[in-house]
């Protein structure tokens, strides 16, 4: 499981990583330059990586964090986004149908869409998966002239990060961004300033799939239980109606106290019904 460690203190904001990213991803440089001005966070379908100013003189890159339990992966209904064992979260344009649920689902709002195209696709950083497979560093890491980016096994990176924090004479804040947030990410940050401007939440936020998975795995059970409870309710009602008819037919009035009018029948199953719906929603 590979990852990238970003050392915010070393970044000068030169954007060479962005240039390398544009070249590597074959984007239109002119449009990419325009999008830097035109978009809020510098990310667009032509610019998959941007460098934002998070504090005075401090720059941090913003791009896909390659979550360990990515929300986009669980969201995509055709399975077009996958988390690879190597670390990168990659996108398969051949599967995409353009529903844009990944854009809604991503807590960092990373995926961008080719709005101007007639046949548009989603675009996001894939951590240069082709290069990583070949054993190379991602283009941005390679391009960084200051050593602000470090590529390697995630566990190693975590170790490096903590050792830097420990040896940094209180320069760094005592937190590795990406260690636990949203279940952990492959891109880790250490910094001397707060990184919430680029979208980092509180450290104890759990991963989104961990919230949704339990619910969705229950789907068949809920469906079956709804169906069976429907059948059960129906059986009870039918039986009562049948009994009632028999009573009415035989003309006996002795057990009329047990017979119920249709309205009462409806009322009696009312709570039953709402309970059952409540059960499936929770």
């Amino acid at each position: 499981m590979k990852g990238i460690l970003v050392d915010v203190t070393k970044c000068s904001g030169c954007e060479r990583c962005v240039a390398a990213c544009i070249t590597e991803n074959d984007s239109d440089p002119v449009r990419a330059h325009m999008d830097r001005v035109l978009t809020k966070d510098g990310l667009s379908e032509n610019r998959l990586l941007s460098v934002l100013s998070v504090d005075d003189g401090r720059f941090a890159r913003k791009s896909c964090m390659h979550c360990l339990e990515p929300s986009c992966v669980s969201a995509c209904l055709v399975g077009g986004i996958t988390k690879t064992p190597e670390g990168p979260v990659i996108y398969d344009p051949d599967k995409c149908i353009g529903c844009r649920y990944c854009m809604l689902a991503c807590p960092f709002t990373i995926p961008r869409y080719e709005w101007q195209e007639t046949t548009p696709f989603m675009r996001k950083c894939e951590m240069c998966f082709e290069r990583v497979k070949d054993g190379l560093d991602p283009a941005c890491v390679e391009a960084c002239p200051h050593g602000a980016l470090l590529f390697g096994e995630r566990d190693d990176l975590l170790r490096v990060a903590y050792s830097r924090i420990a040896s940094g004479n209180d320069v760094y804040l005592p937190r590795v961004w990406g260690e636990n947030e949203f279940g952990g990410t492959s891109v880790l940050y250490i910094s001397d300033v707060d990184l919430s401007p680029i979208g980092w939440p509180e450290p104890d936020v759990e991963s989104i799939p961990s919230m949704t998975e339990p619910l969705i795995t229950k789907t068949p059970i809920i469906g079956m239980s709804v169906a069976s409870s429907l059948l059960g309710v129906n059986w009870i009602i039918r039986r009562r109606m049948k009994l009632q008819n028999e009573i009415a037919g035989s003309g006996e009035t002795t057990i009329s106290t047990e017979a119920t009018s249709p309205a009462e029948t409806a009322g009696s199953v009312g709570p039953d019904r709402s309970d059952q719906k409540g059960g499936e929603g929770a």
Binding site: V73, S74, A75, C76, L77, V78, G79, G80, K95, C96, I97, G98, C99, R100, Y101, Y113, T119, P120, F121, P209, T212, E213, I216
Partner: peptide, 21 residues
Amino acid sequence: IGLPFRFWHPFLMWNEHSFLF
């Protein structure tokens, strides 16, 4: 959807973790 001609994809390509699916 961005690519309407692929509306049939979810029939074949499954991701059962997705609510949209």
